[in-house]
Simulated scan of single mutants.
Amino acid sequence: MNLKNYGIGSIVFIVLVLGWLYQNALKEIAHLKVALQIATKNTQALQSALDEQNAALKAMQVQATQRDTSAVDKIIIKDSSCEAELKGYKQLFKELGK
């Protein structure tokens, strides 16, 4: 009879331990589901902010235009003196400002 009591007691103990482990696993699963929902909402918020930022950057893009630079090619700096270089830069800025 003693062996039967130990066998039944062992089975009851194992069932209780498994039940406790199962409840802990359920709590962990619930915690992970909440964490996943929070992460999903954060990801959606970040994606929305990123889309807004990309739209703003696209609106700020400068469209490149082709300019006639043949007049710039005609600017000649006579020598390396400061006065000659200054005159050359002035002509260059005048041409680029047109």
Rank of each mutant, 00 (worst) to 15 (best):
K98Q: 10
L3H: 14
K78M: 05
V17H: 06
A30R: 04
S48K: 05
K27N: 15
G9T: 10
A45T: 09
M60G: 15
G97Y: 11
V15E: 09
K41W: 03
N5S: 08
C82S: 15
G88A: 05
E52K: 09
L26T: 14
V17Q: 00
I11M: 08
N24Q: 14
M1I: 14
T69L: 07
G7Q: 10
A64W: 04
S48V: 06
A30M: 03
D73N: 08
S81V: 12
A59P: 00
N24V: 08
L46K: 03
Y89A: 09
D79T: 00
K74A: 13
Q61T: 02
E83F: 14
A55N: 08
L50Y: 09
I8G: 07
E28F: 09
I77M: 04
L86D: 13
D68A: 09
K4L: 00
L57F: 15
G88I: 01
Q66D: 08
I14N: 05
Y89I: 07
M1G: 15
L36E: 15
A84V: 00
K94Q: 12
F93I: 10
K78S: 04
A71L: 02
W20I: 10
C82K: 15
Q53A: 08
E85F: 10
Y6K: 13
Q61M: 00
N54G: 03
I14S: 09
L3V: 08
K87S: 11
L92G: 00
N5C: 07
G97P: 09
L92T: 04
Q61H: 01
A39T: 02
G19M: 10
T40V: 04
A39R: 09
F93E: 08
Q61D: 00
N54Y: 14
Y22G: 13
